[in-house]
């Protein structure tokens, strides 16, 4: 990048709204880029997204074509990661499975923190009985183990990947609500809130314009760090047969399929396991990097 554009971005005295916005984004990017591991996480996730988008072109074979004659083949030049019990190419299934993984992660990441943010900030900001009622509801959700609650939801709604994701989202929000409430409690008596109130700002405006922007960053960090857990929960549901249904190449279901042969044909279960491990790790690293950028008080010295 040439020097003048860098100076323009890092200017302490931006001249326009756009420059100010790009400048603060660039500052954040520089902090993030300084964290090598976080960059690694980001690269892995970008690759994952690319893989999901171009799955039909990247996959060497169809993920569904069965070849019973060539079942349970070890990794070879023809099948890089081997074949499963029905002779399907594991690499192709993994590549197509990335779409499902992204769908799960994306949907849960859209629903759970939004519910949590809304409930948590309203509770923290309103206080009194509103706080009591909302937080007790949160406690009830927290009282059940997440996976058990998700199981109950899926059992009631019917087993499918959509319902599994919905169940995960509905069980994942309480920690976000607690986090958002705690953040709200620390800022609701801040002077800048008092100042806005003195301008006649109503509670809705204070919530949306003043409190949300400050809660969102810590929620984003938390979501990134939780993603690994969500992928694992989705895989768990898939493993139990309550998530993705055959023949969908969902990574958890693939492990489940491979478990019968795990001693003799280890690659059938190990390959999707490694994929889950790499993606979870990438999200964790990304979350750490985002914390340095968005939440300076939580960052390590």
């Amino acid at each position: 990048m040439n020097q003048t554009r860098r100076d323009w971005l890092l200017s302490d005295a931006p001249q326009t709204r756009a420059q100010a916005r790009w400048g603060s984004l660039y500052q954040g990017w520089l902090t993030f880029r300084g964290n090598t591991l976080a960059m690694l996480g980001l690269i892995v996730l970008v690759l994952l997204i690319g893989m999901a988008i171009f799955a039909p072109w990247l996959a060497p074979q169809s993920p569904f074509t069965q070849d019973l004659a060539g079942r349970l083949q070890p990794p070879s030049a023809e099948h890089w990661l081997g074949t499963d019990a029905l002779g399907r190419d594991i690499l192709s299934r993994l590549i197509h499975g990335s779409r499902i993984t992204l769908f799960i992660v994306g949907t849960v990441a859209l629903i759970a923190p939004v519910i949590g943010l809304f409930i948590g900030t309203v509770a923290g900001f309103a206080g009194g009985w509103v706080d009591q009622v909302l937080m007790r509801i949160t406690d009830i959700f927290l009282a059940f183990p997440k996976l058990i609650l998700a199981l109950a939801f899926v059992a009631a709604l019917g087993a499918s990947i959509t319902n599994a994701v919905l169940a995960l989202a509905l069980t994942a929000w309480p920690p976000y609500a607690r986090l958002a409430r705690a953040e709200t409690l620390t800022i609701r008596h801040a002077d800048f809130i008092a100042a806005a109130r003195l301008q006649g700002a109503g509670p809705l405006r204070l919530l949306v314009k003043h409190i949300w922007p400050l809660c969102v960053s810590s929620l984003i960090v938390r979501v990134a760090l939780d993603m690994a857990g969500i992928i694992l929960s989705a895989a768990g549901l898939g493993f139990l047969g309550l998530g993705a249904q055959p023949p969908m190449p969902e990574w958890g279901a693939m492990i489940s399929d491979g478990r019968t042969y795990i001693l003799d044909f280890w690659w059938v279960a190990a390959m999707p396991g490694i994929a889950i491990f790499i993606v979870s790790m990438a999200f964790n690293l990304l979350g750490d990097g985002l914390r340095d950028v968005l939440d300076p008080k939580g960052a390590k010295e």
């Binding site: 002077d191 800048f192 008092a194 806005a196 003043h210 922007p213």
Partner: peptide
């Protein structure tokens, strides 16, 4: 307010 570090968002 007293503390200009706390009174601006």
């Amino acid at each position: 307010f007293q503390d200009p570090y706390a009174s601006l968002h």
